[in-house]
């Protein structure tokens, strides 16, 4: 009386074959589209504005969005520009700063995701397959998860000092346990599947069982979890910078721009609103991709992720 529907439609899929199915989902397309636009904005920022994001001009402080002024360019020439997003309290062009800020956010998101997924996958496989190490590893992960992630990142950054890589590592560490748990739970459930037992009975060596029969089951959930890690990383980086302990203030990041806009917020809200909107939209786009992929890959994942 077993229904054939127990097979997930993408069960046979390997990583590459997932792509068309993922792109068929509207959330993935919208989220992905927004991300591509933001990435392009960051990448081609020098083409979109001639202004250096750290160029100060004391005569044009706190200009409202749309104001025009003449700025000095890096090559010694001057240019008349419109400050689309206005300027900050030091007279820097917010449009340029927000565009360059996209680079940091996306870089942090990507780097943290790669580090977390790789580390989490490795530790999770070890914990799931080698029962002797499982208890110890999982207790350590429980302990790490007991420290709220922003606090942990704050403490690490406070000790190590601000810096791009410090922030990336500090943001990554609290995210690892969740991936470990996910991978481990998949390994444990797949290990009991008859097809894995059949492989054991056929004398397939353990490393081959891992890579051939168990690892592929983790791909889809890891892609989904990876996007959530990415969204969280972008958010936590922005929070750290906003609180003044993240990326050094001379680098324009959305968090830094907002931190600098705090003092005069009541009068000049644009210094906080523009980077804020970019930040929110970016995280929203990543989350939409995550949700869309989860629904496309396996609706049953809803509760686990």
């Amino acid at each position: 009386m077993k229904a054939e529907a127990t097979q997930a439609p993408f069960a046979e899929a390997t990583a590459l074959r997932l792509v068309p199915a993922l792109l068929a989902d509207p959330s993935v397309r919208i989220g992905g589209g927004i991300l591509v636009v933001i990435a392009l904005l960051g990448l081609f920022a020098p083409l979109l504005t001639p202004v250096d994001p750290s160029y100060l001009d004391p005569t044009t402080r706190n200009e409202l969005p749309g104001a025009a002024s003449t700025v000095d360019l890096a090559d010694g020439k001057t240019a008349d520009v419109t400050h689309w997003f206005g300027t900050d309290q030091l007279g820097r062009d917010l449009f340029a700063r927000v565009l360059y800020g996209a680079r940091i956010s996306l870089l942090v998101g990507l780097a943290v995701t790669l580090i977390v997924v790789a580390t989490g996958l490795f530790i999770g496989l070890v914990a799931g397959y080698f029962r002797a190490l499982d208890g110890l590893i999982m207790r350590m992960m429980d302990g790490l998860m007991a420290i709220p992630s922003i606090l942990l990142a704050l403490a690490l950054v406070a000790l190590w000092g601000a810096g791009l890589w410090t922030v990336i590592i500090a943001v990554a560490i609290p995210e690892v346990p969740r991936v470990v748990r996910l991978v481990r739970s998949i390994v444990l459930s797949v290990r009991g599947e008859p097809y894995v037992e059949a492989a054991v009975a056929m004398g397939t060596p353990t490393p081959l069982i891992m890579t051939r029969h168990i690892l592929p089951s983790t791909i889809a959930p890891l892609i989904v979890q990876g996007t959530y890690v990415c969204a969280s990383a972008i958010l936590v980086e922005a929070i750290l910078s906003f609180l003044g302990v993240g990326i050094p203030t001379d680098i324009p990041t959305w968090g830094n721009i907002m931190a600098e806009g705090r003092l005069l917020f009541r009068v000049y809200p644009h210094a906080i609103l523009f980077p804020g909107v970019f930040l929110a939209v970016t995280i929203l786009a990543v989350n939409m991709m995550g949700d869309g992929m989860r629904d496309a890959l396996d609706p049953k994942l809803q509760r686990r992720l």
Partner: peptide
């Protein structure tokens, strides 16, 4: 999804 994406400080200032 939206609520999960808007950072609390952006929302706070808003």
């Amino acid at each position: 999804v939206a609520g999960f994406s808007v950072p609390v400080f952006v929302l706070g200032y808003l």
